[in-house]
Amino acid sequence: MPYEPPTHAVERSLRATTGAKVVAGVDEVGRGAWAGPVTVCAAITGLRRPPTGLTDSKLLTVKRRNELAAELRDWVTAYALGHASPEEIDSLGMTAALRLAAVRALEGLPVRPDAVILDGKHDYLGGPWQVRTVIKGDRSCVAVAAASVIAKVERDAMMAELGAAHADFAFAANAGYPSPVHRAALEERGPTPHHRLSWAYLDALPRWRHLKKVRTWPEASVPEIEGQLGFDF
């Protein structure tokens, strides 16, 4: 299906209305997985013409996505990745874990962005950055699309490496997301050290549901996360 290529329209708007000189696009991958980290990429692209075919990573074939990621790593002005582990997801909750990963990515950039374009409608990042949320930003915004492709390829590679020690789970194929093979392996072997133990999939596994971690406290607050990271905002 034909699709419109992403543009710099949102970035130009932020520059014009807020005076932001450095704008980063941010996207995540792994939110809905049963296993593995949630990964966030922050990318700064400036206003240059993007590589041909850039779009949401989910619209690309594996081959094209890998090719484009390799091109993007050299093309972007800067990028950085941040991860939140399964243990952190279980402990903090997904919203706080997403922020943890996003802060790690943004703090990994060589320059601090003046503003951030965040894919989706929910601002899980908050201050001190000025955030603009954009629904389907990974299709419409150049920097967010670049971040989506890099994040997806990097996390897929991580999951394939983890899968080498857990062949029955087929992490190289499913990247830790639900699949028939993944479910069958869970039923037979139970969760690996890379699985999220607060996830509902354990409710359907009688042999292993006793392993489920139930959080009885609210998701961690922003100050709590900042204290864990040791950042002084």
Rank of each mutant, 00 (worst) to 15 (best):
M1I: 14
Y3Q: 13
P6L: 06
A9Q: 15
A9T: 14
E11T: 13
R12M: 11
R12P: 03
T17S: 07
A20Y: 05
A20F: 00
K21V: 13
V22W: 04
G25K: 06
V26P: 04
E28L: 06
R31P: 14
G32R: 04
G36I: 07
V38W: 05
G53H: 11
T55K: 07
D56P: 12
S57A: 09
L59P: 12
L59R: 15
L60M: 08
V62W: 00
K63E: 15
E67I: 04
E67W: 02
L68E: 15
A69R: 12
A70K: 14
A70E: 15
R73A: 11
D74V: 06
A78W: 02
Y79T: 08
A84F: 02
S85H: 04
E87I: 05
S91F: 03
L92M: 11
A96W: 00
R99N: 09
R104T: 07
R104M: 05
A105P: 05
L106R: 09
L106S: 03
L106H: 04
E107C: 02
G108L: 01
P110C: 02
V111K: 01
A115F: 05
V116W: 01
V116T: 11
I117D: 03
G120Q: 13
K121A: 13
Y124I: 12
Y124Q: 12
G126M: 07
W129Q: 13
W129L: 13
Q130Y: 00
V131M: 03
R132L: 11
